[in-house]
Write a protein that binds this DNA or RNA. Structure first.
Lengths: 198, 198
DNA sequence: TCTCTTAAGATACTGCTAGTAGCTTAAGAG
DNA sequence: CTCTTAAGCTACTAGCAGTATCTTAAGAGA
């Protein structure tokens, strides 16, 4: 083999190899040797670009998210929109994407730097959808203004994430999704007036 | 050394060594060699009792939880009780106990059997406190009957757990705790009448 | 007290992985 | 054409989970 890749081309090849490996075996089972072999290069070439396995995989994870901005559902009712958004989130969390993300998050808990890096580029992606959906419901008079806080907007996804933290990779059932929407999200969104304690 | 421990005595010594090791270095850094050395025995003796590192550590984790039933707070108001319970949960999650539990949960995601084992012996411990506190508030007329569901009762702790999943080991601030109580838990608990959607 | 079975203890080993070191040689700039 | 940079190769260290084998103490039963 006389051709020898350099610079950006090589970097892309390594990232793609890491992505393929992540999709096939997940983060936990990914080895640097396999990535190197897959990319047709050597391990130390990888280490010249990323300081560790975790760093490479975070970069690869970012690289595998080409998900262009997806649409906000508009079913006509807040309940329909909420279920649509939550179902979509559930599908993502149950997919390889979610599996990889959870393994990654679990492995870098002790590294606040990378933790922030990974969280910021992923965690807050869906917030705007929820705010949009709630704003639309408010304009229909379905929702009280006092409910338009980020905490309320994300409560459903936050609870879904908790389910995965507790149950592992097992996908969350539709019953749980509707329970979250009907018992938690909708009552909060639809409350009117101020939140009074005393 | 002529004395040679057997049976239960040896088992306790190993578990105690694992507990000490967990407290000092956590689950991720715990090695079977170190546990064996600490217990004054050999690795294969451990493997005759537990099939893997994870199994040993789960047993050790159970062994380190002598926490007798703690009291239910009674501050006179639902808000005060909720903040007390949530603060207590936060303290526990920020302690070595919480750190170890998260590492353990993160490592056995792909093993539903052990996942259930670990979750069932820990996760649902606090539910009764919340139900007690809410029942008391209901008898004061503070809370609507429709709110007395497990989902609502655990919502605060579930959201707290989500914070740890997202932020890693960093302790959650009091501001977040009061935000959860005031924006999520109290509005849900204090709602009156039925939860209607259509 | 003697014997025999069981399991503890010691040691060494396999196999795998992250990360490092040092050398050789192709790419590409000037 | 030359010289610097970095790709590629190979071999290495160090650490860990889990296994295998052999020796020897504990303790039960006769």
């Amino acid at each position: 083999m006389t051709t020898r890749r350099r610079g950006a081309a090589l970097e892309q090849a390594i990232l793609q190899a890491a992505v393929d490996e992540l999709m096939e075996v997940g983060y936990r089972e990914l080895t640097m040797d396999n990535v190197a072999a897959r990319a047709g290069t050597a391990k130390n070439v990888i280490y010249r670009r990323w300081p560790s396995r975790a760093a490479l995989c975070i970069a690869a994870y970012r690289h595998m998210l080409p998900t262009g901005p997806d649409s906000t559902p508009d079913t006509g009712s807040l309940r329909g929109d909420a279920l649509a958004l939550l179902t979509r989130a559930n599908d993502r969390m149950a997919s390889p994407f979610g599996r990889i993300l959870r393994q990654l998050l679990g492995d870098i808990q002790s590294d606040p730097e990378r933790m922030r890096e990974l969280r910021d580029q992923v965690g807050r992606a869906g917030v705007s959808h929820w705010l949009t959906v709630m704003a639309r419901a408010a304009s229909r008079g379905e929702v009280g203004q006092s409910a338009l806080t980020p905490r309320v907007a994300t409560v459903a996804v936050d609870l879904l994430r908790n389910e995965y933290a507790l149950n592992g990779a097992t996908a969350v059932s539709n019953d749980v999704l509707t329970e979250i929407v009907d018992q938690i999200f909708l009552p909060l969104a639809m409350q009117s007036g101020s939140i009074g304690h005393d």
